[in-house]
């Protein structure tokens, strides 16, 4: 698998289909690796312990300046690419994916190809069972109990925004938490501001999150961010039929309105 990935990456550079490959290094922690010479592709590595979603780099100016770019992409990262394209954030024809799934190299795909692959072979990606069980357990609690649970978790947040940096979907040049006229969200790492920030981050991902888990993996304080993400993923699916990351022309649920939407909450 690794051999095929390395060969394919080198070929992309040789054929100038990519000027930059972003993959994972073999050394401890598997940090992101940036390669522009074919011979360096031997250093590429992938296994399921590679937790970063490399699509997060596509919005970085230093990276977009070096297009065309190919990223090593897990299925979730492939979905992120499709979401970014749907949201006009990935330059068409300038981004390729070296697709990987667990221990298999699936080939090189452009965004349309990636969407096709996902639709045909992986049509119902969603939260893993264990995660859904956690969501289920928490949903059984009362509103007061749930609020207390999250208040205790969010109290640990230092507002380092590692979750935001990890997420391909968090590409705003100026995040709402940094808008100060007016100041919507308190920037102090204290109770109510932490609560607002974390809920807002998750909410802005509803129907856009591809459940890659990079945010939770990045959190130094170990907040269970995926529980929130998964809960919102199910809401978006059940209420709006949203399955983000399958249609490069699809409209994000949070950014669109339809007369068919459920409006029963308005009384």
């Amino acid at each position: 698998m690794m051999k095929a990935l390395r060969q394919e990456a080198a070929k992309l550079l040789q054929e100038k289909r990519a000027a930059l490959i972003i993959g994972f290094a073999e050394r401890e922690g598997h940090p992101a690796l940036f390669i522009s010479k074919p011979e360096d592709c031997e250093r590429l590595f992938y296994d399921v312990s590679c937790r970063q979603n490399l699509a997060a780099y596509l919005s970085k100016p230093e990276v977009s300046a070096r297009r065309p770019v190919a990223i090593v992409a897990s299925l979730a990262a492939l979905r992120s690419l499709v979401v970014l394209t749907a949201e006009s954030q990935a330059a068409p024809g300038q981004v390729l994916a070296l697709a990987v799934d667990k221990d298999a190299f699936l080939g090189t795909f452009d965004v349309a190809g990636a969407a096709e692959l996902l639709r045909s072979k992986y049509p119902d990606l969603g939260p893993e069972k264990a995660l859904l069980e956690r969501v289920g357990e928490l949903s059984k609690k009362s509103v007061v109990e749930r609020a207390a649970f999250w208040a205790e978790e969010f109290a640990k947040c230092t507002r380092c925004y590692a979750c935001r940096a990890a997420c391909p979907g968090c590409y705003c040049a100026r995040c709402i938490v940094e808008k100060n006229a007016p100041q919507w969200v308190s920037t102090a790492a204290l109770g109510h501001g932490n609560y607002s920030w974390n809920i807002m981050r998750a909410f802005h991902q509803s129907g856009r999150c591809t459940l890659c888990g990079a945010c939770e993996a990045a959190c130094p304080q170990g907040l269970p961010l995926m529980v929130l993400n998964a809960a919102l993923d199910r809401e978006a699916l059940e209420e709006f039929g949203a399955r983000p990351g399958y249609d490069p022309e699809g409209k994000p649920v949070i950014g669109s309105w339809s007369a068919e939407d459920d409006h029963s909450y308005m009384r």
Binding site: P31, A32, L33, F34, A56, Y57, K60, E62, V63, T158, R159, C160, Y161, A162, R164, A165, A166, Q183, S186, T187, A188, A218, P220
Partner: peptide, 26 residues
Amino acid sequence: AALACLGCGACAYACPVCHCFDLQDE
């Protein structure tokens, strides 16, 4: 050297020496 850096504050906040701060009114 900085290509991989995603620009979060995890390193600075965890650092026992880093002491940069912001002043904000609430």
